[in-house]
Simulated scan of single mutants.
Amino acid sequence: MKTLGRGLRRLLDGLYFAGGLIAAVCLVAILAIIVAQMVTRWTGLTFPGATSYAGYAMAAASFFAFAHALNRGAHIRVSVLLTALGPKRRWLELWCFAIGAALSWFFARYAIKAVYWSWKLKDVSQGQDATPLWIPQLAMAAGTVLLAIAMTDHLVRIVFLGEHGIKADTVDQSQGK
Rank of each mutant, 00 (worst) to 15 (best):
A141W: 04
G73H: 05
L12T: 05
M38F: 15
V171S: 02
W42Q: 10
A111E: 07
L146C: 08
W105V: 01
T3R: 12
S118K: 06
A102M: 10
R77Y: 01
I135R: 10
Q128F: 13
V171T: 12
S174T: 11
G44C: 07
D129S: 11
L21M: 12
L82Y: 11
D169Y: 03
R89L: 02
I99H: 08
Q137H: 08
A102V: 12
A139P: 04
L81M: 07
W105A: 01
L15P: 01
F47H: 14
V80Y: 03
H164M: 05
V115C: 12
E163K: 15
L103Y: 08
F107P: 00
R89A: 14
A61L: 05
G165T: 01
M140L: 12
I76G: 00
R77H: 10
L11D: 09
V156T: 11
F97G: 01
L8D: 03
P132N: 06
W95C: 09
R10D: 10
Y116E: 12
L15D: 01
V159L: 08
R9H: 15
F97H: 08
V28I: 13
G86P: 03
A150Y: 00
L138Y: 07
G143M: 09
L155V: 06
L92D: 06
I112M: 13
A114M: 12
T131V: 14
L45T: 15
L8F: 14
M151E: 13
A148L: 08
V171Y: 14
A84D: 11
A102C: 11
Y116C: 05
T152E: 10
A60M: 05
I76D: 03
A130K: 12
P48G: 12
L27K: 02
R157I: 02
M38N: 15
V115R: 02
L147Q: 06
V80E: 15
F97D: 01
A59Y: 11
W91L: 14
S104I: 05
V35D: 09
Q137W: 02
F106R: 07
A36I: 06
A23K: 01
L94T: 03
G143Q: 04
L94A: 09
V145C: 09
L27F: 10
W91P: 00
A111W: 01
A111K: 00
A148H: 02
T46D: 12
L92C: 05
K177E: 13
G5D: 11
P132T: 13
G49F: 08
F17Y: 07
R9D: 14
L155H: 01
G5C: 05
I112K: 03
R10I: 11
A102F: 14
A24W: 10
G73V: 01
V25Q: 08
K177H: 15
T43M: 10
L4N: 09
I30P: 02
W91R: 10
G127Q: 08
V159T: 14
H75E: 07
I33H: 07
V80D: 15
K113E: 12
L92H: 04
G127I: 07
K2W: 10
H164V: 04
F64G: 00
M58Y: 14
S62I: 09
I99E: 03
H164N: 15
I22Q: 00
R41Y: 08
V28H: 03
I30H: 06
F64T: 00
S62K: 00
V115I: 07
P87I: 02
P48L: 11
A108K: 03
R90D: 02
T3V: 13
H75C: 06
V115L: 07
L103W: 12
R89D: 02
G127V: 09
I99M: 13
G14T: 05
